[in-house]
């Protein structure tokens, strides 16, 4: 049972809401954090916790694009393909990733390290092209930069180029007389 070791977190989540079903998305997110995807076993377990039927859980889970219902690679690369990023070069970047990783969109590399996805707007339109890998945003991307990010992730599992607290323009950057 995947939630056994998270009993405290589950109780805390349930405590936030007067109606149990509200805990559904937080528990689905927790299951995905734990296993990398939302398994059928996890959905049945959640149904048990929330007094729902498994189809009620499945019905909700299939609505939300971030929930992976199948196992994916260790690093989930999600490149924004919406217009604002496309205007500043998202398409060549997706093509580059496709060639560099040797997988198509929606596929995982043979070593199970990288899954390549394209997604719609991630709310980072002023700093495109951009992508999200697992929890982190990477912005103002170039092919060279993406190459370095992938290298870092392969080698150490982390990359210092991920975005910190967002502010664009930064203080002093591009200040114009008002």
């Amino acid at each position: 049972m995947i939630f056994d070791k998270h009993q405290e977190t589950v109780d805390e989540i349930l405590g936030r809401y007067p109606v149990r079903r509200s805990a559904l998305l937080p528990l689905l997110n927790l299951a995905q954090k734990e296993e990398g995807y939302v398994s059928q076993a996890a959905m049945r377990e959640i149904a048990g916790i929330l007094d729902l039927t498994p189809p009620q859980v499945f019905e909700t889970a299939t609505f939300y694009t971030m929930l992976n219902l199948k196992p994916i690679g260790k690093f989930h690369i999600q490149v924004c393909r919406s217009l604002m990023c496309a205007l500043v070069g998202a398409d060549p970047l997706i093509e580059w990733l496709h060639k560099h990783l040797g997988v198509g969109v929606g596929q995982t590399t043979g070593d199970k390290l990288f899954t390549l996805s394209t997604v719609e707007c991630l709310g980072s339109c002023g700093t495109g092209p951009m992508m999200q890998i697992n929890d982190d945003y990477y912005e103002r991307l170039t092919e060279e930069k993406v190459g370095l990010i992938l290298r870092d992730l392969r080698e150490s599992g982390d990359c210092p180029m991920k975005s910190g607290p967002f502010m664009v323009p930064e203080r002093g950057e591009g200040v114009v007389s008002q």
Binding site: S82, L83, M84, E120, C121, G123, S124, C125, G126, T127, P165, F166, M167, V168
Partner: peptide, 16 residues
């Protein structure tokens, strides 16, 4: 939920 393409202000207000 800031998800309207072209919008990224709430992210800055929340993170900063």
């Amino acid at each position: 939920d800031e998800s309207e393409p072209g919008t990224f202000k709430d992210r800055q207000l929340m993170e900063r």
